[in-house]
Amino acid sequence: MGKLGDMANKAKEMAKGHPDQADKGVDRVERMVDERTGDKYDAQTDKAADAARRSYGSGDATDR
């Protein structure tokens, strides 16, 4: 696997080990994108955030 794939796998493993911190990061990024785009892509950012949470097994993926 290439360097980018290796980095993505490492990030996913770290998120699995620290799901609360990963959730905070996902929330922060989602808010930032929504603010910068004037909520124009809110549905897409919600979907992306949920997918990110599912990728590392967060239990909060459907709670938001």
Rank of each mutant, 00 (worst) to 15 (best):
G2I: 07
G2H: 02
G2L: 08
K3V: 01
K3L: 07
K3W: 02
K3Y: 09
K3T: 13
L4D: 07
L4T: 09
L4S: 15
G5A: 06
G5P: 00
G5L: 02
D6M: 02
D6W: 10
D6I: 00
M7L: 14
M7F: 03
M7S: 05
A8I: 01
A8E: 11
N9P: 00
N9Q: 11
K10S: 08
K10Y: 09
K10V: 05
A11Q: 03
K12P: 01
K12F: 02
K12C: 04
E13I: 05
M14N: 10
M14D: 12
M14L: 02
A15Q: 00
A15H: 03
A15E: 00
A15F: 00
A15K: 00
K16N: 03
K16R: 12
G17A: 04
G17H: 05
G17F: 04
H18D: 13
H18W: 13
P19I: 06
P19G: 09
P19S: 11
D20C: 01
D20E: 14
A22K: 01
A22Q: 00
A22P: 00
D23P: 00
D23T: 06
D23M: 09
K24N: 11
K24P: 00
K24E: 06
K24V: 09
G25I: 13
G25K: 11
G25Y: 07
V26F: 04
V26I: 09
V26R: 02
V26C: 05
D27S: 07
R28F: 09
V29Q: 05
V29D: 01
V29T: 07
R31G: 12
M32K: 11
M32H: 12
V33S: 06
V33H: 13
V33P: 13
D34W: 05
D34R: 10
D34H: 10
E35K: 15
R36N: 10
R36A: 15
T37C: 06
T37M: 14
T37E: 10
T37H: 10
G38R: 12
D39T: 14
K40V: 14
K40L: 05
Y41P: 01
Y41D: 03
Y41V: 00
Y41M: 03
D42W: 12
D42E: 11
A43G: 12
A43W: 14
Q44W: 06
Q44S: 11
Q44M: 03
Q44E: 08
Q44Y: 07
T45G: 03
T45A: 12
T45V: 14
T45R: 11
T45S: 13
T45C: 08
T45N: 05
D46H: 08
D46L: 04
D46V: 01
D46P: 02
D46N: 09
D46F: 01
K47D: 14
K47Y: 13
A48F: 07
D50V: 05
D50K: 03
A51L: 11
A52V: 08
S55E: 07
Y56K: 06
Y56E: 06
G57S: 14
S58I: 08
G59V: 04
G59R: 04
D60W: 02
A61L: 10
A61M: 10
A61Q: 05
A61V: 02
A61R: 02
T62M: 12
T62C: 08
D63V: 05
D63L: 09
D63P: 09
R64K: 13
R64Y: 12
R64D: 15
R64A: 12
